[in-house]
């Protein structure tokens, strides 16, 4: 049976596809060198600089291209770390319960309470300074608890279901039950959690940059640029506007895909 593709999904795919294209272009080509400071401070958007220039006289469009690539990859990796580790912890704790549950959930709580600022500092001093992936690692770890908690609840509520009991009676091993019977059923929670996680990762990266522990200048991420731009609303409002719009577009696209996939799943159950 053919199904009409959901409009949310379509819009989401188009937007995300576009952002992905921007990301790929940004890796290989930018109209100007994104760190070059020779185009005049705070130039209004024009044909030559369609997003204008910033406080150092750098071309904002080139920086946005590069920044999108950085933010996209940071957010994606962060969510992947958080989701994989979180699902694993959630599955084990939720399904087995008992001692393992207690131990892991205590660690989980400890991690939630652990200041992310300190965690970032810690990781920077462990992996050595100036490494780009230290932000990803720090944020990824920060994201584990929320995934773990949500997935744990889901697994715990599923394990009492009839089909699990039946599977067990039929001699299926725990691993198989978790992977084949339970995991697909958690998609309904995992999917929104993933898109929300992506969204959160973009915001968290911005907050980290705001606190001065994100990417290292002169590289740019959208969050870093936005926290920089917020102090220049008077002299170059376009800086914040274009960076902000790009962030919104990025998050929006992924959000719509999530929304669409969900709608698509309706009736498939």
């Amino acid at each position: 049976m053919k199904k009409k593709i959901n409009p949310y999904l379509l819009a989401g795919l188009i937007i995300t596809g576009f952002m992905l294209l921007v990301t790929i272009i940004g890796v290989f080509w930018t109209p100007y060198v994104p760190t070059a400071m020779k185009y005049g401070k705070f130039q209004m958007p024009s044909a030559a600089h369609i997003f204008g220039t910033d406080n150092f006289g750098r071309d904002i469009f080139s920086r946005v291209l590069k920044g999108t690539a950085t933010t996209f990859s940071i957010a994606l990796l962060t969510v992947s770390i958080g989701a994989v580790a979180g699902t694993l912890i959630g599955a084990v704790t939720g399904y087995f319960g008992g001692f393992i549950d207690d131990v892991l959930m205590r660690l989980n709580d400890a991690l939630t309470a652990f200041p992310s600022f300190l965690l970032a500092l810690l990781i920077v001093s462990l992996v050595g300074p100036g490494k780009k992936y230290s932000v990803v690692l720090a944020l990824g770890i920060v994201f584990i608890p929320s995934f773990a908690r949500v997935m744990r609840t889901e697994f715990a509520s599923l394990r009492g279901r009839n089909f699990v009991t039946q599977a067990r009676l039929m001699g299926a091993r725990n691993g198989r039950i978790l992977l084949v019977h339970l995991l697909p059923n958690t998609i309904r929670v995992l999917l929104p959690a993933l898109t929300i996680g992506f969204n959160n990762a973009v915001l968290a990266e911005a907050s980290m940059s705001f606190l001065g522990i994100g990417v290292t200048p002169p590289d740019a991420s959208l969050g870093y640029m936005l926290s920089e731009a917020q102090g220049m609303l008077a002299s170059g409002p376009w800086y914040a506007i274009f960076t902000g719009l790009t962030i919104v577009l990025l998050v929006f696209g992924v959000g719509l895909i999530g929304e669409g996939l969900q709608a698509q799943n309706r009736g498939v159950d």
């Binding site: 969204n199 907050s207 926290s227 917020q230 919104v248 998050v251 959000g255």
Partner: peptide, 18 residues
């Protein structure tokens, strides 16, 4: 509504603060 909801999600709190 969906668009608005998505918009709200995307704004970093420091920006709303300002």
């Amino acid at each position: 509504r969906t668009v608005f909801n998505q918009l709200c999600m995307a704004v970093p709190p420091f920006f709303t603060g300002i």
